[in-house]
Design a protein around this nucleic acid. Sequence first.
DNA 1: AAAAATCGGACTATTGTTATCCGAATTAAT
DNA 2: ATTAATTCGGATAACAATAGTCCGATTTTT
Lengths: 134, 134
Amino acid sequence: MLKLSKKIEYGIQALQYMANNSGNVISAKEISEQLNIPYDFLSKTLQILNKNGIIVSQQGIKGGYILARDPKSTTVAEIIKALEENAIIVDCLAEDEENCDRINVCTIKNPMNKLQEKINYLLNNTTIAEFSEV
Amino acid sequence: MLKLSKKIEYGIQALQYMANNSGNVISAKEISEQLNIPYDFLSKTLQILNKNGIIVSQQGIKGGYILARDPKSTTVAEIIKALEENAIIVDCLAEDEENCDRINVCTIKNPMNKLQEKINYLLNNTTIAEFSEV
DNA sequence: AAAAATCGGACTATTGTTATCCGAATTAAT
DNA sequence: ATTAATTCGGATAACAATAGTCCGATTTTT
C-alpha cells in the first residue's frame, strides 16, 4: 500500500499549522477544530511528538504546544521516527529483522535496500518548512 | 507505515525468479517451494499478475507462468498497479478522492503531491531487471 | 483416464489502524 | 482556595486491511 498513517498525516498538518503560527502556544483543541481532525486522536499524536522532542508542551490552562525547532530543520523522516513509526518498505530491512522464513533464499534484499535508500533520501530532505510554503 | 504488502513483495520476488529462469515455464509450486512462500497466497498473486498482463499462464499439467515482457521494461510501479494496489501516500491524492473531511482547510495536499511525484518517479524507474542484478 | 497444473470464489485468522473514553495532573485566572 | 482549560497516560473498542487457507472446477499433457 505504501501509505502514511493518519498519525503521520495529522502530525504533519498540525506541525505545519504551528509553523504558520510560530511564537504562539497552540492548543490541541484549536488545531483539532481548525483542521477538522478528531480531538482525542490528535492529542495522542501531539503528546508523542512532545515526548520525542519535535514540539514543546505547556501544561495547564492557556497551555498548548509550540515547535521545538526551526521548521526548516525538521524533516518528514524525523517526524515519522518521532511518531514511533517507520518507513521501511519490506520487513527484512527493519532493524529488528529476525525471523524471515526466506532469509536463506532471499534475493531481493539488496535491490530493495537500494530502493529504500532512495526513499529515505526523499524523506530526509523534505521539511516542515516546505509543507508551509504552499 | 509506508510498507509494501506481502502480495507486492512476493510478486516481485516471483517475477525476479522467473526472470532468472527465462524461457522456462515455471509453476507456482516451484516458486513457492524454492522461495518459501505460502503456496495458496502466491497462486492468487500470480493469477492477478497474469490477468493484468505482467505474466502469461499456461494451464494444465506442465503448466505455469512466464514473463510477458522483457524484465527491463517491467517497473515496480506497473507491478503494484497490476496487483490492484497503489502507492499513494495520503488518501486525498487518490483518484477517487471524494469525502475528505478536511478538504476545505487542507494545506498539505500540494506539498504532499510533490513528495508523491518523487516517489512515483522512483517506482517508475526501478525495474525487475534491476532486482535480478544482485 | 489420470495427474498436475491454473482458476476462482469464499472464508478465516491475524494484525494494524483509527478512534474513543476516562480519570489524573498541571497551571492560569479569579 | 476554587475553578476552568489544558496536557498526560492508560485502557479499550471499532473498524479495516492484510495475510493466509480451503475447496471445487477447469484445463491440458501424458
